[in-house]
Simulated scan of single mutants.
Amino acid sequence: MPEPFVNGDVHHRACGICPSRVHAVGEFDVFERPTAECPFNKADGHRYLSDGTPVCVHPEKVGLPARRYKSENAPLTVELQLPPDPSAVVPYLHDVLYGAAPVLLDDLISQAQQQIRQHFPELDPLAVMRQALS
């Protein structure tokens, strides 16, 4: 069995009953909020789709976009959109990078460096990333 996404980290924002604490990324779906489609199971405290797929209903806590990773094999991707104001880039990247699931970080960092070069040629991508990650 693959390693759980959140393994023993008591400081992680994921709920104590989140499927991310039991399953690897891609082995559960993430919904924006609870729905009738993924009812609460009183027996074990988790939410499931009718096919048995575990569901997390707090994308902001697990750092993953709401998608059907397990039930529909949705790709694990995220699209970064830097703010138009150069002074807002560092705080935006700080929040995005610190709130993202670790599996997404390489892609987010690559996108950030590319977009900084493209949209803000006056900014040094490496300096911006250092500030965002400090």
Rank of each mutant, 00 (worst) to 15 (best):
I116N: 02
P19A: 02
H11C: 14
Y98G: 03
S50W: 04
R130E: 07
Y69Q: 04
H23P: 04
R130D: 02
S50C: 14
G16I: 10
C15W: 14
S110M: 02
E32F: 10
L76I: 03
T77Q: 05
F31V: 00
Q113C: 09
L76G: 08
A132M: 07
P84E: 10
C38M: 01
A43C: 09
A66F: 04
C18L: 01
K70T: 01
V30P: 00
Y98H: 15
S87E: 13
D85Q: 13
A127T: 09
N7E: 14
P4Q: 08
L93A: 01
A112H: 01
H119D: 04
A100I: 07
P125N: 11
P83G: 08
P65C: 07
E37K: 14
Q131E: 03
D51T: 14
P54G: 05
P39I: 00
T77G: 09
Q118V: 03
F40R: 09
D29S: 03
E72A: 01
L105R: 13
Q81L: 10
A14G: 10
A24Y: 02
P102G: 15
Y98V: 12
M129C: 07
A36K: 15
T77F: 04
E60W: 12
H46I: 00
P39D: 07
Y69G: 04
M129H: 09
A66E: 01
N7C: 13
R68K: 12
R13Q: 14
G52Y: 00
N7R: 14
V22T: 15
V78G: 11
V128K: 06
T77S: 02
S71N: 02
L133D: 01
F5C: 15
P59W: 03
P65R: 07
G26C: 08
N73T: 06
L105S: 08
I17H: 12
P59C: 00
P84S: 10
L97N: 00
V30N: 04
D124V: 05
H58I: 08
F120K: 06
